[in-house]
């Protein structure tokens, strides 16, 4: 049913993604699908990397680690955004069409009052994406 599953990851908070990662890997086993981890970064240095190339390398090694640990086929796909605090969804949607994913599995926080003012990424991606989106609530 799905041959490519996209999993957006925030490398700075990878520890919080466990449920989504597990879910993606279960589905990958079920459908014999490939998992693509998508990370969004900036041209400017961040806490994760000095530059986009270093970020891409870290993302690839994260993907390799996950592939090894969960015995799935996985790769990394880094996206550079000018202003990720605002353009995150657009960057993710573009990545989805670029890599040709058929399913997006993404972690999301539990909604709170602030979501009325500042929407959650998961919700927005689910609203706009042309493919199925599975939003996994982290506790």
């Amino acid at each position: 049913m799905f041959s490519k599953i996209m999993v957006p990851v925030d490398l700075a908070h990878a520890a919080r993604l466990d449920r989504a990662l597990q879910m993606a890997s279960d589905l990958a086993h079920l459908y014999k699908a490939e998992v693509v981890f998508v990370g969004v970064t900036t041209s400017q240095p961040s806490s994760m990397a000095h530059n986009p190339q270093e970020f891409a390398a870290k993302l690839n090694s994260f993907a390799a680690e996950q592939a090894d640990k969960r015995r799935i086929t996985a790769s990394g796909h880094a996206v550079v955004s000018h202003d990720p605090a605002v353009d995150m969804e657009d960057a993710l949607l573009k990545a989805c069409s670029d890599i040709g994913a058929e399913l997006i599995v993404m972690a999301s926080h539990v909604p709170s009052v602030s979501d009325y003012l500042f929407h959650a990424h998961g919700g927005r991606v689910a609203e706009k994406a042309p493919v199925s989106v599975l939003v996994v609530r982290e506790s």
Binding site: T42, Q44, P45, S46, S47, D83, P84, A85, V86, S114
Partner: peptide
């Protein structure tokens, strides 16, 4: 501290 992706409420 130089983060360009800090949460939106700050700006």
């Amino acid at each position: 501290g130089g983060k360009v992706d800090a949460p939106v409420p700050q700006r």
